[in-house]
């Protein structure tokens, strides 16, 4: 998907956006970073297709789009389940399928307060979970999130990261905004800086990469004779190295597979001693032609 020479102004007022050139390739986590009033929310609405640009063209916009606003309006007497089911139906799902999908999303996001409670009775963090869920009713090819971490409870941040990874791994495009530099650098594979209506690609080659490996130290379960169990960790998905020093096993695993591995180990009776990130020395540059 591409934005070419996009400009936006309302009536005869100043231009909110001018000469914006943006590439949104599939499989990438793209951030629009900028302060308040920089035009990033308008840009997001143009990406999603709700706002028509005054000049320029948007090409190759995917058919299935999800949009998560920065705040979900609280004043609604409908329940979360009903609202999601309605949105699912509007997107083309059949009634039953929409209901089931809504329930499973609310369960995954751990909505506190009940799926049948009126939206206006939910806390802000829980209302934002509904905002996220509605965008996922039909798995989107393009997911656009406006300040996603700000409104969500910290307990849901893990699920949000999982969801973002799932979408990009499946070849979808993910676009988000945040005004905090640390959040943008920690999550984005491509950063656009938005300021005063202009958008520039951040080609800074010295920026920190996302850590790609996780280091796990596990303790094996012992049998009735006191002999620790062994396991062939190298055959597990994502494992880069595994060293057994008798008491503990140290495993380096690609971060995307870390959770699966930990879950499997815990199920088999292994104990986790330590977990941390490994920063690779290789720096990757994102910029230029896609």
């Amino acid at each position: 998907m591409k934005l070419r020479d996009i400009g936006k102004r309302y009536g005869r007022q100043t231009w909110v956006l001018t000469h914006v050139q943006v590439d949104l390739p599939p499989g990438e986590l793209i951030a629009f970073s900028g302060g308040n009033g920089s035009g990033k929310s308008t840009l997001l609405r143009i990406v999603v297709g709700v706002t028509r640009p005054t000049t320029g063209r948007v090409t190759d916009r995917p058919a299935l789009i999800g949009y998560v606003p920065d705040r979900f309006p609280p004043d609604e007497r409908m329940s979360a389940l009903d609202y999601l089911t309605h949105m699912g139906r509007v997107s083309g799902l059949r009634g039953e399928a929409a209901g089931r999908r809504a329930e499973s999303l609310l369960e995954r996001l751990a909505l506190v307060g009940g799926a049948d409670t009126a939206l206006r009775a939910l806390s802000k963090g829980n209302a934002q979970k509904v905002a996220l869920a509605q965008a996922l009713m039909v798995p989107p090819q393009l997911l656009v999130l406006d300040e996603p971490w700000s409104g969500l409870d910290s307990s849901a941040h893990g699920v949000l990261a999982e969801i973002m990874n799932e979408i990009t791994r499946a070849g979808g495009t993910l676009v988000f905004t945040d005004h905090r530099e640390s959040v943008v650098r920690a999550n984005a594979t491509r950063i656009y800086r938005v300021a005063g209506g202009s958008v520039t690609l951040d080609e800074n080659p010295t920026r920190m990469t996302r850590p790609t490996e996780t280091r796990l130290v596990l303790r094996a379960p012992v049998n009735e004779y006191g002999i620790p169990r062994t396991a062939d960790w190298r055959s597990c998905a994502g494992v880069v190295t595994a060293h057994d020093n008798g008491a503990h096993t140290t495993i380096h695993v690609t971060s995307a597979y870390a959770d699966e591995l930990i879950l499997a180990a815990l199920r088999e009776g292994w104990s986790m001693v330590e977990a941390g990130m490994v920063h690779t020395s290789q720096v990757s540059v994102h910029g230029g032609a896609s």
Partner: peptide
């Protein structure tokens, strides 16, 4: 209808 919720409806429907 709240303007933000209207935007969400438009995204789901495809056309305003």
């Amino acid at each position: 209808e709240d303007p933000v919720r209207r935007v969400i409806s438009v995204v789901h429907a495809g056309r305003s």
